[in-house]
Design a protein around this nucleic acid. Sequence first.
DNA 1: ACCTGAACACCGTTCAAGT
DNA 2: ACCTGAACACCGTTCAAGT
Lengths: 233, 233
Amino acid sequence: MNGPVSHSRNRTAAGLPPITATKIIDAAVELTREQGLEGWSIRQLAGALGAHSGVVYHHVGDRGTVADAVVDRVISVMPLPSAELPWREWFSELLLEGRPVLRRHRGVARRLVLVGPTVPSALPTIDRGVQVLQRAGFDRDATLVYRYLLNSAFMLVAVEDDRQDLPGAAAGSMVELFSAHEVDPGKPGLAAAREDVLDRAAASRTPEQIASDFYEYTVARALDGAAALLTSA
Amino acid sequence: MNGPVSHSRNRTAAGLPPITATKIIDAAVELTREQGLEGWSIRQLAGALGAHSGVVYHHVGDRGTVADAVVDRVISVMPLPSAELPWREWFSELLLEGRPVLRRHRGVARRLVLVGPTVPSALPTIDRGVQVLQRAGFDRDATLVYRYLLNSAFMLVAVEDDRQDLPGAAAGSMVELFSAHEVDPGKPGLAAAREDVLDRAAASRTPEQIASDFYEYTVARALDGAAALLTSA
DNA sequence: ACCTGAACACCGTTCAAGT
DNA sequence: ACCTGAACACCGTTCAAGT
């Protein structure tokens, strides 16, 4: 939309403040808030700063490097629950409070799950979370369970993000799919799925509410799955 | 690489077989096998058939439509476990045998999770899977549990796919991250994570083996999480 | 109806040249 | 060192024109 506005060859000569890596990442976070991590281009990012795309490469690096920096920023504002909480409450709080932070920055959850503990801001959370599990008696399984719980929850956030940007209109299309034609009476499983979708629509729950319900359900089941390790041992 | 080779304005005039939607999707599946669902362009797809990109739009549609057709094809060759199996075995088989099929077509798992039961080939699996859960006593929760189990497993396959295409060299970089510098002795949780990564490297397990182990672990935990619903009721 | 060939509006990335 | 401006090799999508 808006390109560089100065016609000088030098920003300082035009009385403009210099561009820094910090300012570039600030702008990238803002664009991510508006359009998601995959929703902006290097050119748009530079344009938002009144500069050319080359300066992004000069100060930060390629698209992947900028994206990692955005992820690091977002993760740094994630809540870090108190170490005194029991393990189940600790992870409930992290996963339930963490979701809105991630959802406000679409695409960050996906990249977080992908690059994992490469993100420096994630290290304090990993440290405390693994400790909480060790203390709860997960012992040698603590790191594995940690990865399992965070993956299960945040992968789902990633899917929610992607679904939102999908052109197919998401959940609405599923209502159509099932309400369009009567389901084969010889297929009771499908019939149940159909009823389910239509019930939710009839209860006039918004797509966000439906997604939120399923997220909470998923977190609860994942915690149950981890808890089973303690009772069996 | 290779564009259309005919200089005639008409394929039949040049003695070439006509292009059909089926052939286009055949080629798209093959390209997906080689480079993943996001690894080819409409131009490459048309080029593989010796045609221009316009013909893809003419016979099938835009990129999303072609991708959906590829997903449908791949899902149609997924295993459908016997309806006689107990619910845990039924889902174990589906999720464990389904993984290699999806992994051979990188990117399909991600889109499958995204569009869900919009894929016609998935309907028989949904029907039987929900029935198996109903019979096992999940009752009204059957469809919810079905979604939970398939999501949990196939989202992880999607992450494995994406990680493979990542330029960052994936798991190798995590070994470096942790072996590079001693971890702060005041952070026992991180120390455990570090040991974990180094142990796996020392056991000379390949990235594929590590991924496979974690997948099986995730499936087992998800099944445990579902099983907890039965015992508590 | 089927297909070509060109065009439009974009991408990420690189790099010589200017200050 | 910082930044410009142009270039390279791509994208997805559309569409008039040909047969």
